[in-house]
Design a protein around this nucleic acid. Sequence first.
DNA 1: ATCCTCCCCTAC
DNA 2: TAAGGTAGGGGAGGAT
Length: 892
Amino acid sequence: MGRTTNGRPKKDRPTEDEEMGFGAWGGYMAAKRAKLLDQFHHAEIEKVSDIFKSVAIHVNGLTKPPADTLKNLMAAHGGEFHMYQVSGTTHIIASNLPNVKIKHLGSVPIVKPSWITDSIELGKLLDYRRYLLYTNQSVTQPRIDFPVIEKASSNKPVASSVAETNDLSKIVEKSLIILEKDVKKGVFDQIRRGPTKTAADPKFLEEFYNNSRLHLISTLGAEFKQLIVQMREKSDGKFPGREDLICLKGKTTSNVLSGSVIMHIDMDCFFVSVGLRNHPELRGKPVAITHARNGQLMMNNAHRKASREQEFEMYKDRLPHGVISRVDKLDVNSSLSEIASCSYEARKCGVKNGMFLGQAIKLCPELRTLPYDFEGYREVSNTLYKTIASYTLDIEAVSCDEVYVDVTNILKETGLTVDEWATHIRNEIMNVTRCPCSAGFGANRLQARLATRKAKPSGQYHLQADDVEMYMSDIPLADLPGVGYATLAKLGNLGLNTCGDVQVTSLKVLQGMDKRPLNFHHERKSVSAEVNYGIRFKTVGECYNFLQSLSTEVYGRLDDIGMRARCLTLKLSVRAADAPVETAKFLGCGICDSLTKSVSNILVNSAEVVFREVKILYDKLNPPFVDLRGVGIQLTKLEKNAPLNKALTKFLNQPTKKVETITGVSNKPSIEASSEKNCTENNVKISAKTKDVVKSKRGRPKGIRSSAGRVQKNGTNMSLNKYFGQNKNVPRSEKIPSQKAAPLNEEIDLSVLNELPEDLRNEIIKEYQLEDKIQVSVPSTSSDVKNTEQASKYPENLNLKNESETNKWIQSSERPSEFDVNMIAEHFKQLAIDREIDVLKVIFNFLHRTFSDLNCHWHNAYYSMVNVVQQGMVMRYGGTLMVDRKFGCCGM
DNA sequence: ATCCTCCCCTAC
DNA sequence: TAAGGTAGGGGAGGAT
């Protein structure tokens, strides 16, 4: 990926300000075609023209000629080839695109490949509109759909592509027909839609994420953390790189290591290094990666100027004391495009990552800018991780360009010294990525990290145990992880600047005694999506639409990692009262106040739930939507999704009963639960407020269902866990025995159903189509002697009730006695102790479905039974099962 | 004491 | 013009 097959850099970006002197190639054109054919089979693709100077294509799906050929053609004729569709992509090339794909492509024109070949044939750029691949572009709700890397197709001789169409009159004729059709359908309108998008535009999220460096950094980091976990899971314990190294070096006497050696690898000014791969002429020069090309703009609008100045002033006021403002050296015409990464030459002038381009240009007038290369960052990161993983999987992924590696075993096995190893791995990384990196070594991650600081750029350093204290004392506090600008300002105000200054006070951290081992197993604790750019709503409708898109986005991410959430937080950024309406930065968020509101004890297991809760929270916060500048949704209290099981899923996804969440129950079934009355039992307020007449699907008595059992607390629900005081100090993730439950894709043991009364069992089996799941174990209850006396020997007899006995209880028109309630409750409790979690859900659902009807004589008894079953679950799992308002029950 | 909610801060 | 995301740690302060 990222290179042509002949090893040449994948791009020659002929953008306006790069002055590559393409004009010199201008006159070659068609005469070079014969030569061109050969080029694809040889080492170098020579540029023969710049027909496609301002064109950047992305090939979607199979084309004729194939993507690979088109890529080479673009390289040869001065165009760009994008593996992904990005904002800079000017045309999508496709031969045959089903409608379902079209809707994801946005307003970029979709053009046939013959446009490329014909243009080359004729030696000039033809009007692409004649080559539009026409389709009815349906207007559908957008979703984030990151393009997938296309697999490079086989190397096909280019002859076929050039020969594809060469009859000019035919081309023109055909094109005119297409053109006419396109005009009729108003396709041009779509193509020409303005490039600027605010969050009111349904395509906004996709475009924003495709161009956001911070989003990329974040998602890449998370991806690599997950990748390490996966690789460790399926590892065969073999490391080809390490083995090669042993062969290479030969068995030497293993060096004696005292304790472990941690390596920290950090790519040098990552984005710049990736960019420089295709711009060797800029090596050694001050370079920065930004969206903007120019540091100074022409700001003609007086009002806008005034707004800018006002915001700059406010910005300075809001910073903590002692912090130098980022807008300090800016004038009203300065670009506020942020520098994602800058070269060491630029840093010498004082340019820093995150600085606005306007300010950077003032510090360093010769600063050259390069555009982002998001595919390149992915590619290099992948290669970096792949390279290290060939030696060890004791890797803690920090981010796309930074890793900690426990190299103790590598050094032991290979007998290499730290320095030899460092040289080897750095050379290899340089060779495969063409990007330099630095490596630091130490006894723990802090030491390794601080050693890297000395190693940079493009070097290596081993911080020896004896030198640690000396070394640390000179380290500026700013270099310590966790010390940012706010902390630094506070420390600075106290006159503390280096570790030496504070070594007396906080010996442990500052002497580098970081005892934490590397964390190879990363477990997510939250999932969020946040946008603080481009948020401008003119109507509430636009706002709600965006909240919905964001809900879908964030739920998609949750679903992707196979989790669900119990807590949701909505974060809104609202224009500060005295901040100008027009932000200094184009579509930026300006100076904002932040509002947060969260809800707990919900089950987030669909995008609809997210949006529903988001709406509720939004309405509670009720901000003026025109002043909204940022929106974020965060999901926390994550749990693993229950293992997929078709039968069980179906069972649990039963049609919604209008029963509100039951998250708390009384210890005693003494509530005379009228549907309107609120009762207090054991200091827990139990409300029965929602009522809804439900027609029982199973032919059970129709009745009013209530929300009795919900524990009210400040308007939110309190969980059973809290009520019962369980779950103390035990991480939630440790309590979920999801692996112990039914294994993935295997049928669950539903034999518990056999223990239910026959009529109910049959109904459940029928309703949930469990016929083929249940026949396995039929209990021999039929021959059981009905023995009421034995049954009455509670609690000795906790064994299965025989059917007719259970039937009698349920069908009895009389109020069940406390004795009976206790009996059946203990019965289920024992099941709870004996069974796996997914079976418990079935039990719970059964109880709920059967007994929660208000006019069921067992209604009150139900709560008692649920309570006892809960106790069983606590005994078995240390947690309880929640009953959700949508599903019967939903896990621990 | 310990939890929860609403922040703030930091890292990449 | 410009693409100011995201995960995790932790603290203040109120509720229990």
